[in-house]
């Protein structure tokens, strides 16, 4: 999924870089709202978690394996602004220290995974969660399910984003429909894996620390803290 150098022409690489820089500037402001003064250490650790999560491979059809993109997962767990920031830092570290994803393609990768992957995933998650809460009374299993749906849509959405970008700024003449169907087709399969893993991870975090799941705020029944101790003055 990491676009290397040379896939997108130089002018379009610069253009995506400018757009990505703008998106990151917005994310920096938004993340401060989500995390206040804890932004730096928490976003750093969440970025590390996303990086580690991307190292986990899961088998996709026909012997190939995909790895987690983590955009939707991060958005549900820590909120979309922080997720964009975390994905950006992950991509930055991967490009600079691991040569994974081209340096000139950094803007492209940030737009595809950090913006499209995160925000499409998050939007679908919110919509699904809202539709489900309206239809059901038991809320708890809905959040992981909605997260899975968000993750499932986010992967082919990012792939479609790549296809569109390659059609306008790519370096090879190829019909958009061919590229779009191939990219989306392959990534639907990866999306299934992403969806299952995302749903299960969100479910397991909800079971242990439901307060940490940003996307579940307002969806889970609130539990009030009951204290039987005397107040100390």
């Amino acid at each position: 999924m990491h676009v290397p150098d040379g896939f997108i022409s130089a002018p379009w690489s610069l253009a995506t870089g400018v757009v990505a820089a703008g998106a990151v500037a917005l994310a920096l402001r938004g993340a401060r709202r989500e995390l206040d003064d804890r932004t730096a250490p928490l976003a750093g650790l969440v970025a590390t978690f996303v990086f580690a999560g991307q190292m986990v491979n899961f088998p996709v059809a026909a012997g190939t394996s995909g790895h987690l993109l983590g955009g939707a997962l991060a958005a549900v767990l820590v909120g979309p602004w922080t997720a964009t920031l975390c994905l950006t830092v992950v991509l930055l570290v991967q490009a600079l220290l691991f040569a994974d994803g081209g340096l000139t393609a950094l803007g492209t990768n940030v737009i595809l995974m950090g913006v499209i992957g995160v925000w499409v995933g998050y939007a679908v998650f919110r919509l699904t969660a809202r539709a489900m809460t309206a239809a059901a009374t038991r809320h708890r299993p809905l959040v992981p399910l909605a997260a899975g749906v968000g993750a499932f849509v986010s992967v082919p959405a990012a792939a479609a984003g790549f296809a569109l970008l390659f059609a306008v700024g790519g370096t090879a003449p190829i019909a958009l429909s061919t590229l779009l169907s191939a990219m989306v087709g392959v990534h639907l399969a990866i999306g299934v894996g992403e969806a299952v893993i995302t749903a299960l991870v969100v479910g397991s975090v909800l079971a242990v620390r439901p307060d940490l799941v940003h996307g579940a705020r307002g969806l889970l029944p609130t539990r009030t803290l009951v204290s039987h101790a005397e107040a100390v003055s």
């Binding site: 003064d37 250490p41 978690f49 999560g53 986990v56 299960l200 397991s204 620390r209 940490l212």
Partner: peptide, 24 residues
């Protein structure tokens, strides 16, 4: 074995986040 994998990742997230809180 995906559920096992996912529980491990979930635990990893909680540990990472809590480490972030402690560091802060």
């Amino acid at each position: 074995h995906w559920p096992v994998l996912a529980r491990a990742l979930g635990a990893l997230f909680v540990r990472s986040y809590e480490r972030g809180e402690r560091v802060h």
